[in-house]
Every structure is written in C-alpha cells, then in structure tokens.
Nucleic acid binder design. Structure first.
Lengths: 344, 344
DNA sequence: CTCCTCTTCTGAAACGTTTCAGAAGTGTAG
DNA sequence: CTACACTTCTGAAACGTTTCAGAAGAGGAG
C-alpha cells in the first residue's frame, strides 16, 4: 500500500494528522483490499480497553429474558451503556448447568455488572479476581465494590405488616432460590439462615420480622423454596402450601411471577382471591397490574436500577474514583389480590 | 516470576504440557501478583477470535427491551450463544439518534446477527463490510449472507383474507416504520412503495394483495405509519384512522403493540371491539392472549427465530461452509378482537 | 543563507497473548 | 555407550493496532 501502518492508523483515528488526499487514498486502497478499518482486538489490546461492559447473571441468560424484571433491568443497563457508546456483553452462564469460569475470564470487557449472584458462587470470586471496575446489584456488599439495590428487608416487612393489618394470622411463604442448587421444597429455618441469595434471604427476613413483632411465630410459617423464578414454580409451591393445616389465609411471595402461579392454583382449587386467600407479590412487573386480580406487590424501579448500575460502572471507567453505592426506593402497591381476612 | 511466558500460557490452556507442580506454582505466583489469567484481548488477537457474537438492531437497544417480540428474539439468540459458550454483544445504536458506524466497526465479535435494519441503512453496509460471518433476520436478502425470517407477506395476506371473510370492506392499516426516519402520519402509495423495512413493507403488501383480490381498492385504505412500535403510537394511529370517512370497520396492524393501542382508543371512543370494530395484530406476543379482548393476530416463533439465527451464525463460525437460510412458519390465531361486520 | 516553525509522514516499541520448533533433561532398550 | 523416545520447558515470531519521538521537506522571517 506504500504507506506506513501508523499512517493508516492516523487516517482512521486522527484525520488532522495527514493530508486529506492521502487519507482518501488510504481509504480507497482499503476498500479495494477489503479492509474494514482497524481490528477491534488489536486496537483494544493496544489501547487497553475493550469498549464494552459485561453483565454477569446467576442464571442462564436465556432464562433472564423470560423474566420481566430482568428484562427491565437490562433495559436500564443498556440505556447507560448506549449513552456512553459502549457495547453490552452478556456473559454466558455455564452451558450445561455447570458454571464455567472460562467465560467470565474470557470476557473482553472494561467493567462488570454483577447481578444477583449467590454470595458463595465461585463465579463471583472469579469475576472479582479480574479486578475490573465492577458494580454489584442485589447482592451482599463486597469491600471496595459499589453496590446498587433496594431495601429488600424493609420492603418485605412493610408488605407483611400490611397483611397483618388486614387481620391475617396464618401465612405461607413462596420464595425463589435461597442458595445455589435450590432443591425445591419446604425450607426450614436452618435452610433459610443459609440463604446466599440476598433478595430471597432479605425478603424472608423482612416477612419474618413483621410476623414476629405481631406476636406470631415465624417458625410456624411454612416456606416453600422454588427452583426457579417462574410461574410454574409458584404453582408447585401453592399446591404444597395450601395443603398444610392450618391452611394459610395469606401467601407471601418473593416475586410477582411466583405470586401469579400461586393465585392460579388457589383459584383452581376453588378459593377466591382475595376473598378466601390473599396473595402478595414482589417486583411490580408490568403484568402485575394487568393480572386478574391485579396484584398487590412491592414496586421497585427496575429500569432505574439498571441505569444506576450502568452509570456507576461507567463513572468508574472514566477513572472518577469514588464509587458510591445506591439504595433505590420501593413502595407497597395495594391492588386487588389482598383483602381482609374472612371472619371464621 | 522466573518462568517463560509460554509456560504461563500452557499453565492456563494446556495443563498436559507441564508438570502439575510447576502449574501450581504458576497459579500461586499469579494469585500473589493479582494476575487473573490471560487477558481476553491479547488472547483474542493472537487466536483471531473474540469469543462473542454481536447483534445489530435498527433501533436503540434500550427500546428493544421494551418490545416483547424483541425480547423473545434475544432469548433465542442468547440460548444459541450460550450453547456454544459464546458471549452476546449488544452493539449500541447511535447514542443520540445519529447512527454512529464506529460502534459497529469497533465491536469485538466473531460474527453478526443483523436484525431488522432498513435496506438502505448505512450501518448495514458498514456491518457487511466487515466481512464477518453474518446472518440477516427479517430483512431483504443479501447475496452470500444467510437469512432467517418468516413469510410476512403471506401471513399478512391470510390475516386480511380472514377479515374479508367476516364481511369487512372498509379497512384502515396501522404500520410501524416503513423507512428510516419515519415521519408519523398517513403513508400514501408512493411512500408505501419506498418501504425499506422488510416487515412493514411486506406485511402491507400482503394486506394489499388480499384486499385487491377481493375486488376492493387498496388505494382507498388509509395507512398510518407510526414512528415507533409502541402502544402509544398505535393510539395516535387509531385516532386518525377512526376519524376518516367512511369509517373503517376493521383495522389491520403490523404488530400487536400497535393493535393494542388502537383497541384502547376505539373503546375510549365508545366503540365495541370486536362488535363495532375488528382489530387484528401481528406477532402474537404473550400479552396478546392476556389482553381484553384477546387479540386475533399472526403467530410467529420469535424465540425459535433467534435460536435459528444464532445457530446458523455459529455454524458459519465453525467453518461449516454452506450458510443456509430459513423461513419459519406462521399461523393465524383467531381470538376475540375480530368479528363479523355489523349489518348496517 | 540561517534559523525557526509547520505540516506531513515514518519507524520502532509496546500492548498480552499463543504457537511451534526445538533445547535440555531423563529414562529405556539395545 | 549409543540411540531413541518421552517429558518438560523455553525463545522467537506473530497477531493488528496505537503512540510518540522525530525525520523530511516546505515556507517564512530575519
């Protein structure tokens, strides 16, 4: 091509460093040779940045897209990365359930959003070992890494207190995974204490706190741990919980998806919701308001959470040192899936 | 560290090439030095692969997450990439509406899923110039690049024929973007002919074909072109179309989101849907079945579309030459938003 | 003509790997 | 003791850029 590599580089990156004619000539030759501009990997290596941030999620990515709350969270992150002109790399979970650390190590990113991973997930350590700028979301804090999240415990407590105020005394709880490798089934107190997923652990703690301070016994409340956060699991949980004696009059779910499944089963069994049984959710996904009956649930700002996480991460990339954490507000949204307990 | 770089490399990538003790020692030193394993960029450069595939979308990414059809499509792609242990890089659209080619050129990926871009979008050319393995989805075919899609025209035609069979003769159409920079407003025939977005163009063509072959005049059917694929735009379209004389008794939408918006407005104006006005959608997003009334619409397999696109792309990566295209099946799903035309 | 400044371009080094041929050492068979 | 085969490790080159100091030449001021 008869020109130094550095000149080609300048043609693409610093037009002011060479004459317009030569620049045009370089492009012309590039076109003829089928050269599409600097290779991203070579450039990334030299410049020491990848031009993308990664997001690490506890489950398989493809599951995340089936969870409306996750999708909104992604929407927020992508908004932040788009603002900054960065790519968003979705890091694959283990291809066959096995958590491959390879993918985490191999992700060409400048920073990491680590979302909702179990405290003891080996992948979490792998991720932190990379010493990239990172931000934790809905997870226990780690020294030196900013966190974004909500007050899970407080919000759950408020939700349970609301039901107590309606006169309910017999509860059942539907939780998603408490720790890696959820078995699916009733989780006793010790299993609850082992919870390594922050949201499930904290929300149960909130429910427990409300119930104990009402003079009731949390130990008597059956907690069903689902294997995944999906409607079908909520159904399974309700099957079990509604067969208990004494039968609960109120079900506390840790997500709307689970709550929806529970309501389905309750109705199929001939109960009126909220007439006979009240069900409360968590997340306030868009479907919650559309649902019949509309779900009483805890609103949390999913999109904003993603946006905040993205922005905090990006600020770190810019080298603006102080990584601040953020706790976003929640709000109990009373709709139609809860009512005063029926007088016996 | 007292050991050759190649040995470190072997420690991480080829355990069989060195003694277990040395390998352990390497890791030990790595830990102490805070070395987290081979740098993805260096490795990528040398190995000539990035370990990720990119997805390029016509809109801003953050919009995509708000569209259930898009989300399902992503779900499919991510399933495919996850199977292959690859990352999924979401390439940012122009940060401020302006389509920056930088991001496309700068994406460190081994292949590209190019989804639903206008035929004349400069970014499309930029993407193809990279000469990476690619697959086009819901787009006009390009020589040498495999395509994945559905028979938009045939499916739309079937949908319109169904309405004609119900006795409707006065139609209105609600379309999303026909070409880059949609203005929002009635699109005349010449604008329709200019359509560069395959799905909108083909679906309208299908509607037109059905109507013409029923002996009606497509030229008399007002077509409202929305700026974006969202409920609020469907509302605007319906406001306009329902004010036309003669008033349409059936609205043909090119997406469910638009159909839902149209139904809202029709009802607010005191019409019964489907009593007075029939509305048909396209996509069969999950919300379509939940909606009141449930939407009559064209089902297409969104997740499978993403899965197919991903797999075809990944097959090309593996060097398996022949890139085959795929046309996925669709199906008219009759629900409650359509009915026989009211006898005057 | 000399000195200085500008513009335009170049050369070499560096970014962090992997690859591959081969060096060094250790056994084993003949 | 030689020949050969392993095993274990190393050195150099290459991957495709960008950066930075500076060479070469042109033009202007003194």
């Amino acid at each position: 091509m008869g020109v130094a590599p550095s000149t080609v580089s300048n043609a693409y990156n610093r037009p002011d460093q060479l004459s317009p004619e030569l620049r045009e000539r370089v492009f012309e030759v590039a076109r003829r040779l089928g050269y599409a501009g600097p290779d991203p990997l070579g450039r990334g290596l030299r410049r020491r940045r990848a031009g993308a941030v990664g997001v690490l999620y506890t489950d398989r990515l493809s599951y995340a897209f089936a969870d409306p709350a996750a999708v909104m969270f992604f929407e927020g992150i992508s908004q932040a990365t788009e603002e900054a002109g960065l790519g968003l790399l979705l890091i694959p979970g283990g291809s066959l359930g096995s958590r491959e650390p390879e993918a985490v190590r191999n992700a060409a990113v400048d920073g990491l959003v680590i979302w909702c991973m179990a405290e003891d997930d080996p992948l979490l350590e792998t991720a932190l070992e990379r010493r990239l700028p990172a931000v934790l979301v809905d997870q226990p804090p780690v020294e030196g890494v900013p966190s974004v999240g909500i007050d899970d415990e407080g919000a759950a407590r408020a939700a349970a207190e609301y039901l107590i105020g309606l006169g309910h005394t017999r509860f059942g709880a539907v939780s998603f995974e408490l720790a890696l490798g959820a078995r699916g089934g009733i989780a006793d107190l010790s299993r609850q204490r082992e919870a390594t997923f922050l949201p499930s652990g904290s929300r149960l703690k909130g429910y427990a706190a409300a119930i104990e301070s009402a003079g009731l016994s949390w130990a008597d409340v059956p907690v069903y741990e689902c294997k995944e956060n999906k409607v079908s699991e909520g159904r399974v949980a309700a099957e079990v919980l509604l067969s208990k004696t004494p039968q609960p009059t109120a079900l506390l779910a840790t997500s709307d998806l689970l709550a929806i499944g529970a309501i389905e089963v309750a109705r199929e069994r001939g109960f009126s919701v909220p007439g006979d049984i009240s069900v409360i959710g968590f997340d306030d996904i868009p479907e919650a308001a559309q649902h019949i009956p509309p779900l009483t649930t805890v609103y949390q700002p999913h999109v904003e959470k993603g946006l905040a996480a993205g922005r905090i991460l990006i600020a770190q990339l810019g080298g603006e040192g102080v990584a601040h954490s953020e706790v976003l507000p929640t709000r109990l949204v009373v709709r139609g899936s809860t009512a005063e307990v029926k007088r016996a």
